[in-house]
Design a protein around this nucleic acid. Structure first.
Length: 171
DNA sequence: GATGTCGACGTGG
DNA sequence: CCACGTCGACATC
């Protein structure tokens, strides 16, 4: 066991959309991965048996993900571990968490919201670095004029999540 | 509308 | 230093 490595568990969540992978550090949920298109990787667990705490976090995550995939508010979440991000990224991620389901913001609005009105593309970069999609709702950030904009993982997930929340957008 | 250009800026190499 | 992003404003056709 590497003493320096943060203890981390990867646990699967099976949904109607496929198998997500949730990662936990000692601080909480630190990553979420969309179902891999090539469902070859079956790396469900890493290392030792998850602690009781991780298990209870995971139960919350699974429940919340189920709700989110139906376009509903996620309810209780485990603590989110942002510690992997830079200061700038964390400020963007925090701001994104304030966007309610069914609402959207533009990259420009997000840039203004964190006090860096010109860092528009940098906001896009921070979205792309989002380790916990869905719960840190980068899919609710659209380009100007309600245009869909991009997505670093499968753009279809952005479309799907927005559709589930009843959001109208332009391609 | 559809393109093309240029500016702005955090991040990783 | 350089290139690259889930961009935006503007110019031009």
């Amino acid at each position: 066991m590497g003493s320096s490595a943060t203890t981390q568990h990867s646990l699967a969540i099976s949904t109607a959309e496929g198998e997500f992978l949730a990662r936990y550090s000692a601080k909480g949920l630190c990553g979420l991965e969309f179902p891999s298109s090539a469902r070859s990787t079956r790396a469900s667990v890493v290392g030792s048996e998850p602690s009781r705490q991780v298990k209870s976090w995971h139960a919350l995550t699974a429940q919340a993900l189920d709700r989110a995939l139906h376009g509903s508010p996620p309810g209780s979440l485990p603590p989110l571990d942002f510690s992997v991000g830079t200061g700038f990224q964390r400020s963007v991620w925090r701001a994104m968490r304030r966007i309610a389901p069914g609402q959207t913001r533009s990259y420009g609005q997000m840039a203004r919201a964190i006090g860096r009105p010109k860092a528009v593309r940098a906001v896009g970069g921070a979205c792309g670095a989002n380790p916990i999609p869905v719960f840190i709702p980068c899919h609710r950030v659209l380009a100007a004029r309600q245009r869909l904009g991009g997505f670093s993982s499968d753009i279809n997930w952005k479309r799907k999540l927005l559709a589930r929340e009843g959001v109208r957008f332009f391609e």
